[in-house]
Design a protein around this nucleic acid. Structure first.
Length: 287
DNA sequence: AAGAGGCCCTGATAGC
DNA sequence: TGCTATCAGGGCCTCT
């Protein structure tokens, strides 16, 4: 589910629901996520108060009052569910895992508060939870990541400089979190369509104007997706179980063989694979 | 150093 | 009905 806009939607609802609350209990059902959750993890979180919930790129960050953090990544299939206590009390006093509101399988992590519980579900287990001791450590975790499209540092000078002698396609760079962080496979195709740039174009071949368009549309696509509550393909819902609607705005993603939506373009949407990831583009207006 | 490719994992769907 | 193959929103690691 989760590129930057979907993670932002989760962040917004988590902020509303758990900020200023104290973690009462943490119950781990399956420690084998992307990185194994250490045995001491529960103790590190219990009794900590959540000062703020923030996000960087596709990472969720629980900021605790004592300046420690919990870093959460949703991988490919991670979802977060909020369950109110009055519901769970009908089922069990100790765990929310059996709530009928949850998926039946793959609920791995439960963080309990007085009045509610946060449940992490992840069938493919590509996501992770990590306790971070201090702000310096946190910063270190993000050291290798490029700017988000929204940052001022994601500017023309940065792109032109980055693309010098880069003999690799632009689609791969949009997915490369070291170059720009937060864009994933869906929005990469959507952004390049709006730019009218072929996804296989080598980065070093892009004009100044191409770079300007990439900057502009990276921001605008992500911003609009956030406004629409994210994209709900397969099972993405916000923590209250509501669907996003940006999937209705897709111009190319999952539109193979359909006509180009651009006025006066008679092109057809093609699907190709670039570094093993599906890539969609119009065969006419993207050259 | 840049770039290509494999791999982690489960589930949904397509094709026989 | 049930097999097998392929693909899915991500990112890390290794090899050349």
């Amino acid at each position: 589910m989760p590129e930057l806009p979907e993670v932002e939607i989760v962040k917004q609802s988590l902020s509303k629901k758990i900020e200023q609350k104290r973690i009462k209990k943490v119950i781990i059902k399956n420690r084998n996520l992307r990185f194994k959750i250490p045995l001491k993890f529960e103790k590190l979180l219990e009794q900590k108060k959540i000062k703020k919930v923030t996000r960087f790129s596709k990472y969720l960050i629980l900021n605790f009052n004592d300046n420690s953090f919990c870093l959460i990544h949703l991988g490919m299939s991670g979802t977060i569910h909020l369950i109110n206590k009055h519901i769970i009390n009908k089922f069990t006093n100790t765990s929310f895992y059996n709530s009928p509101e949850l998926p039946k399988k793959h609920n791995h992590v439960e963080i309990q508060f007085n009045d509610m519980s946060v449940i992490y579900n992840d069938p493919r287990r590509f996501g992770f939870f990590r306790f971070i001791d201090n702000p310096k450590e946190l910063k270190k975790r993000f050291n290798h990541l490029g700017p988000e499209p929204f940052f001022l540092s994601f500017n023309l000078k940065y792109l032109l400089n980055f693309f010098i002698n880069k003999k690799k396609d632009i689609k791969s760079f949009l997915l490369d979190q070291k170059f720009v962080s937060g864009i994933g496979n869906i929005y990469a195709s959507e952004i390049l369509f709006l730019c009218k740039i072929n996804p296989k174009t080598y980065a070093m071949k892009l004009s100044k104007n191409d770079c300007k368009k990439i900057i502009y549309y990276s921001k605008s696509v992500l911003k609009k997706a956030i406004e629409k509550g994210g994209s709900s393909i397969r099972d993405f819902k916000n923590t209250e179980g509501k669907n996003g609607s940006f999937q209705k705005e897709f111009k190319v993603y999952q539109r193979e063989n359909q006509g180009c939506s651009r006025k006066n373009c008679h092109g057809k949407i093609k699907k190709i694979f670039i570094s093993n990831r599906s890539t969609f583009f119009c065969n006419i207006c993207q050259k």
